[in-house]
Design a protein around this nucleic acid. Structure first.
Length: 284
DNA sequence: CACCATGTTCCTTG
DNA sequence: CCAAGGAACATGGT
């Protein structure tokens, strides 16, 4: 369930639930999801820490923990990959089939479940240094965006997926932002005019903010393992079908009419990923 | 069986 | 070192 908006909504939800709680123990069931540490080092390193902040950077979850005595504070990073889910559940409840990590918090436990195991956890925050600006923060300026695009001949859609350009855009919102900006996904990044870059920047911010606003109104489901919780784009959970159409205007809508002009939406493949666009509204 | 899926990293080639 | 392209990772849905 990744991409910036879903991670942001998750962070807003978890922050009040986790802050103040202490990690009694950690159990790693699939050490594949650990990026740098061994299973033992990760489990031991986190135990005893108390959550003091839950934040987001790009698609990463950032947890700040304080520790007893003179031990320095620490951070844990989580990335949900393609299918990762993170939720609180009662300690005595069942574990989902693809449980990868469990954080024991006493009465509750925080469960990381990930069918494809593409998600990653680490105590090393170094990866954050390679991320581009936060799209919703002021440092994602038009000037910075121009600079990130001017020396690349990659198609703009592919460029938007590069997390060093701007952090948090994924395959869905890349198509959505380009549609809103009226820019063809195949246009080489260096060929965008200043006006187009400025417009694309606004579209990115609009599309992401909109998704966060929508996601924030959907109640998250922490009760059942593996059930849709409204943050999934697919597996249309009951009750979100009405908002689905408004939310995504071109993504996964090949051969359906463009909501602006009625032209059939096309699907193409770029960098081995699907791109959806309106060939009429996005001609340059 | 075939193809598709919200992401990143590693390897190769130029 | 950089840019770009493709495979790999792993599991499930259609």
């Amino acid at each position: 369930m990744p991409e910036l908006p879903e991670v942001e909504v998750l962070v807003q939800h978890l922050e009040p639930l986790l802050c103040g709680k202490t990690v009694r123990a950690v159990r790693v069931f699939r050490s594949r999801v650990l990026r740098s540490e061994s299973k033992e080092a990760f489990e031991r390193g986190l135990s005893g820490g108390r959550f003091v902040a839950v934040r987001r950077r790009g698609k990463y979850l950032v947890f700040d923990l304080s520790r007893s005595g003179s031990k320095p504070p620490m951070k844990v990073l989580g990335h949900l990959g393609m299918t990762g889910r993170l939720f609180l559940a009662p300690r005595d409840g069942p574990l989902p089939k693809h449980t990868a990590v469990v954080f024991d918090l006493g009465k509750d436990r925080l469960i990381f479940e990930d069918t494809r195991y593409f998600g990653r956890w680490t105590l090393d925050t170094g990866v954050l240094n390679h991320l581009g600006p936060e799209p919703l923060e002021p440092d994602f300026s038009t000037g910075a965006f121009v600079e990130a695009l001017r020396r690349s001949r990659q198609p703009i859609k592919v460029r938007l997926l590069d997390q060093t350009v701007v952090a948090g855009i994924g395959n869905i919102y890349a198509s959505e932002a380009l549609f809103r900006a009226g820019i063809a996904p195949k246009l080489p990044a260096c060929r965008l005019k200043l006006q187009q870059i400025a417009r694309l920047r606004r579209s990115i911010r609009l599309v992401l903010r909109d998704a966060i606003r929508r996601g924030s109104t959907i109640p998250l489901n922490f009760s059942g393992a593996g059930k849709p919780d409204g943050l999934f784009y697919f597996g249309r959970a009951p009750g979100i079908s009405a908002t689905y159409e408004e939310r995504l205007r071109v993504y996964d809508r090949a051969n359906l009419p463009c909501p602006e002009c009625g032209t059939m939406i096309k699907r193409i493949v770029q960098a081995a990923r699907s791109t959806f666009f309106c060939p009429n509204c996005q001609r340059k």
